[in-house]
Design a protein around this nucleic acid. Structure first.
Length: 825
RNA sequence: GCCGGCGUGGUGGAAUUGGCAGACACGUAGGACUUAAAAUCCUAUGGUCAUUGCGACCGUACCGGUUCGACCCCGGUCGCCGGCACCA
């Protein structure tokens, strides 16, 4: 170790040692308790950003501190390697997606390794690798056999000019991002997963099994699944044999129905408008709706639109004739695609009725006398008694729901039901750079899975990338060559679609437990040893999609008997964004700071320390260059202390006896730091306060060393402890210092130091004395003083006596070891 | 519009969850060392008033409440951020 701190030399040295020794490689050890730390694997864009650095720094402190606490720690890394950017690179620059992706991964490997994260690189995976594709396809086939995968006609964004399917992010304000044509909806037969079959279990487990998740994520998932209880009610259409079925949570308001709204996509619409006066207007309206994305339809604000379709249906509860409209505020994808309009008790229906001059009939009597039910200014949503509803009049609102539902069931006009907001997962993508769906269409046998021995179905390389037309796979001359039905052997056609990349990320955590298995996706014993993931770490933006899909996959794989765990992630930490100057780091604003630049200039240790110190992990982090300087100074300050101390006193005994108050204070600070850093890091993730505690210890050590009576063995003990507890944060410089002071082996392999409870007990404590809750004095007292003694000492204080002059003490409140509050008048 | 979260010095943030508001840093100012600079070290640093000293008062977005005591709990208001699929 040299006098001057040379971060580049030190970091390269230890990174090489770790790599050469495979220091972070782990295997199953039944005698040790396991701990699986996982950070969300990155998309290989080619460049690491600060968000990555933050994510991985957090994960590494967790992994390294758990390892020191005695656990067998699995901490893997890999790449979410399929996706649109690689295909765009192919279209724009003619680069092969595979080549582009592999070059990016190599570059990211290099950058990641400069961060000094304790990854078991021997388990590295990439979702585009053939072995991963093989088992991905194998899993798809199991899902198909289980009935979880099925084909269905579904809407896609369609650009009529490029003649191609667009992803949501390729649609800009309703137009194609490349050619600016207006995007339409088009029906396509696509593969779906029946995630809705698992809705109830996914919902139940949020309460029973996800106790280690943040409440906001659990709430978001609950809302996403969106369970609601209600009734399906049927309304026969006049002069037709058709019956409209609606879903409502408010069966009690059925007497207040004054109109009916069908979604423009509702299957009855075509037949109902045909030949009617409204036909032209209705068709134009439907066309207009088909051009809008669901997001635009919902972002339109409160102004309601719609068309009366010259048709009526019958409300069988009161035999009233009800006009039928179509309107885009009713979505085909939720409930039954039809809504009964009760303007008195639903705000959207109220807005619609107001716009179209329809009747508003109240069926709930407001308790507030200020509200006139016959002249409502807005929908009335509060509780009350039922009115205008025949036999149900006078009933409580809640009771009426059940009573109406019971009556509907008896008459055969409806039934109680449960609806979920969540829809099935459409997994087909009309793209090249994804995992091929291993299915074959045979005119005789239908959809048949490819034979297992033929997996993986590889991506063809003889394809053209134009950005137009169907999937590039269809341009391959060889992809369909010689394909026969695995069932009957007749000539057949392969599926040309690929899988949504969310499938890849829904089981990678299982593959890590057995990353090179060529016989099966993962060995069950190995997966059972490492699963579930003890700590999952990633961005909040994945709260619903990825985190729900992964839970769903784990559940199906559990049901297939492949793993014992039903839920994949025991504890979840969602980290905040990295911002600069109050704004998100972005190229267009020009405030991007690259981790590589910072690591070159200050070193990975400093970069990691700053990013962990600047804010708690779940909050936004404001990057400041000045703040990094501060962390760099701290690393230097520690380095200098250890260097100077060792130069002066050398190695030797660490057996000490406490000789004076300074010794006692130092011992206290060391032990306090051991305890507090461990507490802050495990579970609380308060890395910022853990680091500030270490800073306080270093400040104390400097002060102590400058004093008159340096107790060398004691200070040796303090130095050794400091290196150990700092090592999860700044591992390179700690290895260097550990080696320098003559520590055995790697600091990485050391145990977390134990603290001495007795050293944390103080002889005297500072007691705060308040008068009427305001701080007036601080007095040192024996640590064990009881309430009576405390009160006596407080009342004898000169300052307090002075303040109490002319006042009368009403009562005194004492909290032992903390406070005396004198209430005086 | 609905849901979730946040609001503390010039700045990032602390505060053992109802008991000393501002830990630890950054920044700034002054000083020591130096021919000088960098580095390092020391001192001060919420506001106002008083500074000859002791100090005094105010202060956690705003208004109110509960309490001996409120950044923390309750009610209301304002502002900012995030999520959303008008969910019937």
């Amino acid at each position: 170790m040299e006098r001057k701190y040379d971060h580049q030399k030190i970091e390269q040295k230890w990174q090489k040692v770790w790599e050469d020794n495979h220091s972070f490689h782990v295997t199953e050890d039944p005698n040790k308790e396991k701990y699986y730390t996982l950070v969300m694997y990155p998309y290989p864009s080619g460049k690491l950003h600060m968000g990555h650095l933050r994510n991985y720094a957090i994960g590494d402190v967790v992994a390294r501190s758990k390892k020191m606490a005695g656990y067998n720690v699995l901490h893997p890394m890999g790449y979410d390697a399929f996706g649109l950017p690689a295909e765009n690179a192919a279209i724009e620059h003619g680069v092969e997606p595979g080549k582009w992706t592999h070059e990016n991964m190599d570059e990211m490997d290099r950058q990641l390794k400069t961060m000094g994260i304790s990854y078991d690189w021997d388990r590295k995976l990439a979702s585009c690798n053939e072995d991963y594709m093989k088992w991905m396809q194998w899993i798809f086939i199991q899902f198909f056999k289980k009935g979880v995968a099925y084909k269905k006609d579904t809407d896609v964004n369609w650009c009529p000019s490029c003649n191609t399917v667009l992803a949501n992010e390729q649609v800009w304000g309703g137009t194609c991002e490349r050619c600016k044509s207006v995007v339409e909806k088009k029906k396509l037969s696509q593969w779906n997963f029946k995630i809705t079959d698992y809705a109830e279990r996914l919902l139940e487990n949020i309460d029973t099994k996800l106790g280690g998740w943040p409440d906001n994520v659990r709430t978001m998932q609950r809302n996403w699944i969106g369970k609601s209880k209600g009734a399906n009610i049927t309304f026969p259409i006049e002069d037709s044999d058709k019956i409209i079925e609606v879903f409502t949570t408010r069966a009690d308001t059925t007497y207040g129905v004054t109109f009916m709204v069908l979604s423009p996509e509702h299957p009855f619409v075509e037949e109902l408008i045909k030949g009617k006066p409204c036909e032209e207007e209705a068709r134009a309206y439907i066309k207009e709706c088909s051009m809008k994305s669901e997001i635009e339809r919902t972002a339109e604000g409160r102004e309601k639109t719609g068309v009366f379709i010259d048709t009526y249906c019958i409300n069988r509860l009161n035999d009233k004739k009800v006009p039928i409209y179509i309107s885009d505020y009713v979505l085909m994808g939720y409930g039954t695609g039809a809504v009964m309009g009760v303007p008195a008790h639903d705000q959207r229906d109220f807005d619609f009725a107001t716009k179209f001059g329809l009747d508003i009939i109240p069926t709930i009597q407001p308790e507030d006398p200020e509200v006139d039910p016959n002249n409502l200014k807005e929908a009335f949503l509060a509780e009350g008694k039922v009115i205008n509803s025949g036999e149900f009049n006078g009933m409580d609102w809640h009771d009426a729901i059940a009573a109406v539902e019971k009556m509907l069931e008896e008459k055969g006009w409806g039934h109680h039901t449960i609806t979920y907001r969540m829809r099935d997962w459409i997994i087909s993508r009309q793209r090249y750079w994804g995992c091929p769906i291993p299915m074959i269409w045979c005119d005789d046998c239908g959809w048949v899975p490819e034979k297992e021995e033929n997996l993986p179905v590889k991506l063809p390389t003889d394809v053209e990338f134009t950005g137009k037309g169907e999937s590039p796979i269809t341009t391959s001359p060889t992809f369909q060559q010689g394909v026969t039905c695995p069932c009957c052997g007749k000539p057949a056609r392969r599926e040309v679609d690929t899988m949504d990349t969310f499938l890849d990320s829904s089981w990678y955590f299982l593959r890590y437990t057995d990353a090179h298995n060529m016989e099966e996706p993962f060995n069950k014993e190995k997966a059972n040893y490492w699963m579930d993931v003890d700590q999952y770490i990633g961005g909040i933006e994945h709260a619903t999609m990825h985190l729900l899909y992964a839970r769903f996959f784990q559940m199906v794989l559990h049901d297939l008997g492949l793993t014992d765990y039903e839920e994949p992630f025991r504890n979840l930490l969602t980290q905040g964004m990295v911002i600069k100057d109050g704004r998100k780091m972005s190229k267009s604003i020009g405030n991007v700071v690259s981790p590589e630049e910072i690591i070159n200039k200050y070193g990975a240790d400093t970069a990691r320390l700053f990013i962990l110190f600047a804010a708690p992990p779940d909050r936004e982090l404001d990057w400041t260059d000045a703040g990094v300087e501060g962390s760099y100074r701290f690393v230097n300050r520690v380095y200098r202390f250890v260097y100077d101390f060792h130069e002066e006193f050398g190695a030797g005994s660490k057996e000490f006896t406490v000789e004076n108050d300074d010794d006692k204070e130092l011992v206290y600070m060391v032990n306090r730091a051991i305890k507090k850093v461990a507490d802050d890091v495990s579970g609380k993730f308060a890395f910022n306060t853990a680091i500030s505690t270490i800073m306080e210890l270093v400040n104390t050590m400097y002060k102590y060393k400058k004093g008159d009576n340096v107790n060398v063995p004691l200070l040796r003990y303090a130095v050794e402890t400091l290196i150990l507890i700092l090592s999860p944060f700044t591992p390179h410089v700690c290895e260097e210092m550990w080696q320098y002071i003559g520590g055995e082996g790697l600091v990485f392999d050391q145990s977390w130091p134990e603290y001495d409870e007795d050293a944390l007990v103080m002889d005297t404590v500072e007691i705060v004395v308040q008068i009427n809750g305001k701080l007036k004095d601080k007095i040192n007292m024996q640590a064990g003083a009881d309430a009576g003694e405390m009160e006596k000492i407080a009342l004898e204080s000169d300052k307090i006596k002075e303040q109490l002059e002319g006042k009368q003490v009403v009562k005194v409140i004492t909290v032992p070891g903390k406070i005396v509050n004198i209430v005086a008048k």
